[in-house]
Amino acid sequence: MTELAAAAASSASSDAASTSQAEISAEIDAIAQEYDAAQVVETDARLDYPPYRSSILRHPTKAPHQVDPEGIELWAPVFGQRDVDPLESDLTIQHRGEPVGERMVVTGRVTDGAGRPVRHQLVEVWQANAGGRYLHQRDQHPAAIDPNFTGTGRCLTDGDGTYRFTTIRPGPYPWRNHHNAWRPAHIHFSLFGTEFTQRLITQMYFPGDPLFALDPIYQSIVDPAARARLVATYDHDVTTHEWATGYRWDIVLTGSHRTPTDADTEDDQ
């Protein structure tokens, strides 16, 4: 454990809630400067990122074991039309009334590192409501629950790898990493590729969020260009007249080891 991590661990165990944003921001800045000085590009989130206090005891300390994917790992599970109802991609129609908030469409393409579309594959999303409240029993944030919004959706990508959800723009919400900690508004995305190794769970953010610099989860991707890949783009061509604003966010999974075949697009039809 580094000195910084040790200090953070001791702080996490004693007084995480009393750590100020200024202290967290100073830790974030120190890591950013260290990253800049090292001149080695990192494209993933750091697992060992002490400003996110919950990561301190939950990251491996040993280097991962390098393997070549084989057998089952060269394939991903198949999801088909039996798994997902097309209506599940609209998070605004799951109840009797309209949910509160800014109706929006988010769409984009899922590809592998070579630009090949990930066809007919499962995409899952979940998010807070417009007031920043999750419909989860452990969410104690005293913002209103919206009886017309659950905040979960699913879809299958189409033949071009495109996904599309209709939802409500989520609000930012407070959490307990430190005193006065707020997460930038985001939508959680869960993705499968054509191979097991491409499995990805991540978060999509909105352009220009003032909370970016303050958020240890977003900043755990220490490379500015890499973390910018999690930010959607406002797209007026996706926006629809008198109905919904539109955002575009493309997702690139890690390169694949096997050339996708027709078998990757089979479903239970």
């Binding site: 494209t43 993933d44 690139v252 999974l253 890690t254």
Partner: peptide, 13 residues
């Protein structure tokens, strides 16, 4: 070769 989209924590909820 396209740069991969980074992962993020699954979070608490």
């Amino acid at each position: 070769t396209l740069a991969p989209t980074p992962g993020q924590t699954v979070g608490p909820f």
